[in-house]
Design a binder for these strands. Sequence first.
RNA 1: GUCCCAGUAGCUCAGCUGGAUAGAGCAACAGCCUUCUAAGCUGUGGGUCGCAGGUUCGAAUCCUGCCUGGGACGCCA
Length: 556
Amino acid sequence: MNILAQTEEALKQEIAAAVMKSNLANEEELPDIILEKPKDKAHGDFASNIAMQLARIAKKAPRKIAEEIVNALDQSKASIEKVEIAGPGFINFFTKNDFLGQLIPTIIDAGEAYGKTNAGQGEKIQVEFVSVNPTGDLHLGHARGAAFGDVLCNVLDRAGYNVEREYYINDAGNQIDNLALSVEARYLQALDKEAEMPEDGYHGPDIIEIGKTLAEEYGDKWANADEKERLLFFKEYGLEYELGKIKTDLADFGVDFDNWFSERSLYADDKVSNALKSLEKGGYIYEKDGATWFRSTDFGDDKDRVLIKQDGSYTYLTPDIAYHQNKLERGFDKIINVWGADHHGYIPRMHAAIQALGYSKDKFDVKIIQMVNLFENGEKLRMSKRTGKAVALRELMDEVGIDAVRYFFVTRSNDSQLDFDLNLARSQSNDNPVYYVQYAHARICTMLKQAEEKGFSKEENYDASLLTAEKEVDLLKKMGEFPQTIADAAEKHTPHKVTQYVFDLASLLHSFYNAEKVLDQENPDLTKARIALMKAVRITIANGLLLIGVTAPEKM
RNA sequence: GUCCCAGUAGCUCAGCUGGAUAGAGCAACAGCCUUCUAAGCUGUGGGUCGCAGGUUCGAAUCCUGCCUGGGACGCCA
């Protein structure tokens, strides 16, 4: 399946054998053989720095070592075409590219499955992301987290990990009480009654909308009702409304969760008190100033943290610890949280909690999504939910389109801040790289359609060895890297590598397209081979776009 | 003050488990449509990789210090 990786592995083994055969190092001294793919084609298909690494061990000049290795190398193995020693002692390998021909049938046969590997070996990973409080609209920052988390999961899944997506619903804390109070105020205001928004209230237009709807539906019924009952009703109403909107927005954005986890269920199942007991059993709990504290400093946190406040209520951290205990009890090998940059200070105490509960801190990983700065007409816009001036994900999807938004968000590394220019994103110009990639896909589709119309459809017996033009070989090599690229992106949690890859492949396609004619009546054999090549490229681009959650149009 | 992230071409960013001449898009300039979609291609110019030390055969990449920008340092969530 992963032909390129097989070739690379065979080559590594050959190098290792040659090193030992030349007595340059014994098995223990032998460093990891690193093969890199040189940027410069003149440096071959693979390059090894083994001679430099061995310089100290073997006490010889790197170039001399390289010579000895090359002499000991069995070039008949590992598809080696040519070996050169260059620079300070690099060994450059030029491989026979015959194996690349096998790639096309491999890709065409695999179809949508091309790119799959078992790199993750079924490791159970849970990714919790978005988890926005159900108190307002999803905005730009959330959208970035949603896109990142979703594509990360797609990539993990493709690379052979067993992935579960989860959303944590904060439906039990203070913020929900504030939601109830905000709804109450907006409801009363809708009835033209005096009402002030609570100090920490939610000022979004959605809450105003809820107030209006309630006023229309119930008149002043709730204005005269018992306050407790009224707030309880508003709380549930607001929660259902906000959560429903979040779910719809995310689904429309192409993000689906396997599990929506309710904070309330933690209380219902005594998870919170059980978590406190677990910490107490470990001796990490003490009383001070009328509050209950978690000694998180035992695990490197800056200061200890309050779990139960003076007034007897829990801090945010307490149910969150219970939640993470619950996650770990569910048997995941690893749990990943995707958080906004404003929560990064929360990491040390959570790491402390994980360890206090008796788990290795390696099981818990946090991906921080840096801020999104929104620009319009060259002006920076605020995106605070509380000001109500936020540009919502919904608005963005409507104006810019899902494809562009998703692609843009996973083009950059998660720990770089992102400038989002609304004007640029709105204008459907070629400034947006998503069109570039989609265009490559559409171009191929047109060619394949015409191939059929012109009677070139019977390409079953193509001869891949005819594909020797530089740009054809470039395409083949790039496609061969696809499974490894996904595996890398999964291992390093860098979904933007897939976006990068798909762009590069599209670029090679466009370049090829302009240099060579695919459908050539004069040259039926070459045409057959090139049609097969185009089919493989189309599949690879489509699979890459699928991972990003971007459509692969057949026409543009 | 402490901690986290960033600082790479005019702009937005890749590259960072150390490797050969530091890349892409946009912007600028010069070319390419009687031929499969010009939302494309080809070429040119553009860099003290924030600064200073260190580690080594070799540093944008690792270590230390400093500078700049952003964020976090609640018995808020």
